[in-house]
Design a binder for these strands. Structure first.
Lengths: 239, 239
DNA sequence: GCCGCAAAGTTGGGGCTCCAAGGGTCGTCG
DNA sequence: CGACGACCCTTGGAGCCCCAACTTTGCGGC
């Protein structure tokens, strides 16, 4: 509103307003650089900068050779976190119950505990761990990345029996009593942006999941979801 | 890695690598525009663009007149979501238990249900609601925004007794049995960026909380947290 | 009526420059 | 010895330009 702030922000705010109030519906074209310079009486740098801000905010996408368009707001996919079916991760199972075809691939290797993972599993640094990397796809597109860590002694037959952590640990005589998950948001790492085919400006939801047997953490995993397409739902009983 | 991708990305990737592997620790200065042009043999535009990308990624902050510095990674504040103390929202209580002074202010007014809120509370459109807006502060800085909606008939004495939803509903003979929360991430709205004093490039965590009495939703609220400072933790018992 | 090609428009990378506002440093003056 | 000011450096806003790669459009010919 203030006439003192940068001119590119004036442009950004005007376009953002038009997107929010529906004047520019999803899919609608945004004026080009040349049109913006004329319409708002600004230089090319300001017009260009304004468009870049809108792109990194995720409100708009740019198509080379064509133009900028209001981004279609994808429907946020719900992931319900209070059922624990017999699946590698509840996420995939939950997605399937919504009538979506979800496929996943994984690869297993050995690694040593990094400071972060050692802390989470309460193990000494460079303890031997089995690491499993998952990539989930739905309708062809990548949906979710996950990396699971657990002590090597529990990982026998991991590649054959794809049962959930709870069931598999139980087969080793370990009773999982609790699952804790921590959700935060951050900028995707380059590898993640690549694997999940994230458009510029989107963030990811990072879910840190740990399976506990009483006071002992038994398995931990990092689950990375495109922030613009997922919402994670939790249920807690009261009283 | 590929020598074909834009030169500014080469610069970004090199600096990002140095930040990640600790060569550039938090607080360390990033080479200035002039130094980058010399060091990487690129034009000023590329150097400038590289710095901007690092800033919007949240890895680096720029101080006018001084330079760019590796951003101090704020310690992510945990908010544990499995205790329900007698406080307006569990968030504030949880923060306090960590030895932080948290203050909050609120204002109450009346409003009609928007499509979104009507859906969540299963009420007809434009049903009469009491809306309470909260702003939480910790150590002077704004921490969290929340807007709570509930049918007017439960809101008596809302401004006097600041008890939690569960306790207050119970006084009206309504037993809350379940709390559901949905977490997603998005770009802050301008008013939120302003109220929470969010630096450029940060996202927010948006928690949608609903209190249920059996199959009836009784209260719903939108809780907005700075994505770069908060992590939300949930616990689920197994078996 | 349809096809293909050329021209025009658009994005995104990159270059150069000027300038205001502010931080840092060092030396001089009181 | 301490305070203050000058000077240099840095960021961030803004302007203008060139070009490659790509999309869209419209026209002419078949």
């Amino acid at each position: 509103m203030a006439t003192s702030d940068p001119v590119y922000l004036r442009v950004v705010e005007d376009i953002r307003r038009q997107i929010n109030d529906g004047t520019l519906p999803p899919g609608a074209p945004i004026p080009s650089r040349a049109q913006l310079t004329r319409k708002y009486q600004v230089g090319e740098t300001a017009a260009r900068h304004a468009l870049r801000v809108l792109v990194t905010e995720g409100l708009v996408i740019g198509r080379v050779g064509s133009g900028h368009y209001v981004r279609e707001r994808p429907i946020l996919m719900p992931l319900h976190r209070w059922r624990f079916p017999e699946h590698p991760t509840p996420f995939a199972a939950d997605l399937q119950t919504q009538g979506r075809r979800v496929t996943w691939e994984w690869q297993i290797d050995s690694t040593e505990a990094t400071p972060e993972i050692a802390r989470r599993l309460r193990l000494p640094l460079s303890a031997k761990l089995t690491r499993t990397r998952y990539l989930y796809r739905g309708e062809g597109r990548p949906l979710q990345l996950a990396i699971s860590y657990e002590p090597v002694e529990f990982a026998a037959h991991l590649d054959e029996e794809r049962r959930g952590v709870v069931a598999r640990m139980s087969a080793h005589g370990v009773r999982i009593t609790e699952i804790r998950e921590t959700v935060h948001t951050r900028v995707p790492r380059p590898a993640e942006a690549d694997a999940l085919q994230l458009p510029a400006g989107t963030h990811v939801l990072h879910v840190e999941r740990t399976h506990w047997a009483g006071e002992r953490p038994m398995e931990t995993s990092d689950i990375v979801l495109p922030g613009d397409r997922f919402r994670v739902t939790y249920s807690m009983p009261v009283g």
